[in-house]
Design a protein around this nucleic acid. Structure first.
Lengths: 354, 354
DNA sequence: CTGAAAGCGCTTACAG
DNA sequence: CTGAAAGCGCTTACAG
């Protein structure tokens, strides 16, 4: 079939550069990759011609000969309508993306309905050499993805943990520390009955948080329970209602993310409880939403972008090692090291009533 | 260099399949692609072996021989902290992604700081054959991306418009219709002084909305102005303050998105204005946030996912046509056609005071 | 210091 | 109906 050049200028290949420079394709490749074995003037001439022609390597060709895709995969097994209201994922993706693109690695993103679909995506990516490795988020207490990537030999890093991570590297968020900071803040204000509206119990990080929550309460001699939700605002509202109706009414409620906190806030106010006079409210995830809502929400702030960047950096290193040719330029992560989590105290927390 | 098999099972190639089936690689390729010129039993045998071996095409190899990347690009030139609170983009991306992945096309996503960086990304993607086409969002009133993609011959589709789209296909949102619905709702309630806190004036869709806003007001014999912002909550708060302080105080304020509406709501309440008794508030973008905030916000709801899917579908078609080999299976868009925009009336709108 | 050649895994006209 | 071969654009040992 005749090659249709299509519109626009033709994109040059090393063959073009070689011809213009009067050398072989191999020499061009050597010059462009900084390999030794080329006289300095020749190298300079080749590079100048490539530069002038606007040459860039064809990724498919490079991927084929290097047996590397030059891409990492991230499949998100949460429905889009949930992702749309959670500022956590955009921040995480942004951090991952910044780190990868600094290393010329692309990010393949796919949104899927559930973990089954995610595993299908992982298998397909790997079978098609679309990716060199993957990032796994939302680790489950029983997680079928871990044995799958291990069996495939697919380099993978867990963004989160600890949990059933097998031999995979994992990067815990600051769950324990953040929960502790919140409980200590509330206890310092005088609260002794602190409940929590949590994320899905099936998530390893929810389990970690719940353990930290119990321990922090026990250490302070305070009481409280955690109700799991599926992260929807409906579930958050229902859980809040349940906490208020069953009694004893908590003097403070912690929500695992900001949008659930806002939903809970509305329910509390409609139940005739003033925030923070009757009930204090804290969000485990900070966002602009926490700032603009009234009363503004006390929230745990942490560096989600650095969290994603760190995991992405580890994945790139893992891929390099697995391929048996570590790259020369192993820079430190492109993003500054993660700052420590801090509790941003706003208007929604105060002393308990009475 | 010796090929390091690495951990995990070896991924089969057509050479393996050919060997097991006792045929040539060409025959395997024919069988797998459904090309004619193969006996039915042979085809079946080959397919069964490929299936059993878990064969999947190596995308790099296919891309190289087909001169196609099998991917589309989307670069978002908004800072991550803004993206993180805007439910529009997750929905849009989800719609694009659903449409593309139904066609086995990958989505390359990159977040960049500004349009300059976006153009650099586009050039690089195209030069490296990383993508077959791109989606352009947030069309500017003067948009430097349009001449660039036209000059490159890079297939592109504008998600939005109309505006300076040159010869590129574009897909307007329902801006005019949505603004009209909002103004008509408010006018019906009796409002005659309606102001608007808008997005950046440099965006073509902001211009479209502002024109529609003026026309709708004029048609109803109502008054009102639009103040532009950079979509930050700070700017929304400042604009709201300005509207309240300069007078005449509007009896209704329209915000170009939900998070700005929530920020404005706080400012209005702190200025001693009750919503909706003194001022009605409407958001041009609906989200769960509008539901959970108190008072809940009247908002314009439209099918952003279908919007993204439609544009993605057009891009795939454009790429097929540009390559000179339209694909056989030109299904209709994978997502159902977009529903008409509707105004979801909640607690934040009511008759004007007096 | 440089060139010719093989190979990465596919696709596809072209012979048999 | 099937096979052998060239080509996509690179990389990289191997000869000269």
């Amino acid at each position: 079939m005749p090659r249709r050049p299509g519109p626009g200028p033709r994109r040059p290949t090393i063959a073009d550069i070689a011809e213009r420079a009067g050398v072989s394709k191999g020499s061009v490749s050597y010059a462009l990759n900084g390999n030794p074995g080329l006289s300095e003037p020749t190298r300079r001439r080749i590079l100048a011609i490539a530069e002038e022609a606007g040459w860039r390597p064809n990724r498919a060709a490079r991927a084929l000969s290097a047996s590397r895709a030059g891409a990492c995969g991230l499949a998100l097994a949460r429905p889009a309508h949930l992702l749309a209201y959670d500022p956590f994922f955009p921040k995480l993706i942004s951090g991952i993306e910044a780190e990868l693109s600094a290393r010329q690695v692309a990010l393949m993103l796919q949104m899927v309905d559930d973990v089954e679909a995610e595993m299908r995506a992982l298998r397909r990516w790997w079978a098609e050499r679309r990716v060199d490795g993957v990032l796994l988020v939302d680790l489950r207490v029983v997680d079928p993805r871990v044995p799958v990537v291990e069996q495939l030999g697919l380099p993978a890093v867990i963004v989160g943990g600890p949990g059933p991570t097998g031999k995979l590297p994992y990067f815990p968020g600051h769950d324990t520390q953040r929960i502790r900071q919140i409980v200590e803040h509330l206890v310092r204000l005088g609260h002794r009955r602190i409940d929590r509206v949590a994320g899905p119990a099936a998530f390893a990080h929810t389990q970690t948080r719940t353990r930290a929550f119990r321990e922090a309460l026990a250490r302070a001699g305070a009481m409280g329970t955690a109700l799991s939700t599926d992260y929807t605002t409906q579930a958050a509202a229902a859980a809040t209602k349940k906490l208020v109706e069953r009694g004893p009414v908590p003097t403070a409620v912690v929500y695992d993310n900001d949008i659930m906190a806002v939903a809970g806030l509305g329910v509390l106010q409609e139940a005739g409880l003033a925030v923070p006079e009757d009930v204090s409210v804290v969000s485990l995830e900070d966002s602009i939403l926490c700032e603009v809502v009234r009363p503004s929400l006390t929230a745990s702030s942490w560096d989600v972008e650095a969290f994603g960047a760190t995991a992405a950096h580890a994945l790139v290193k893992l891929i390099d090692e697995a391929s048996g040719r570590p790259r020369v330029n192993d820079f430190t992560p492109g993003v500054a090291g993660p700052a420590e989590p801090t509790l941003v105290v706003r208007a929604s927390t105060g002393p308990p009533p009475g």
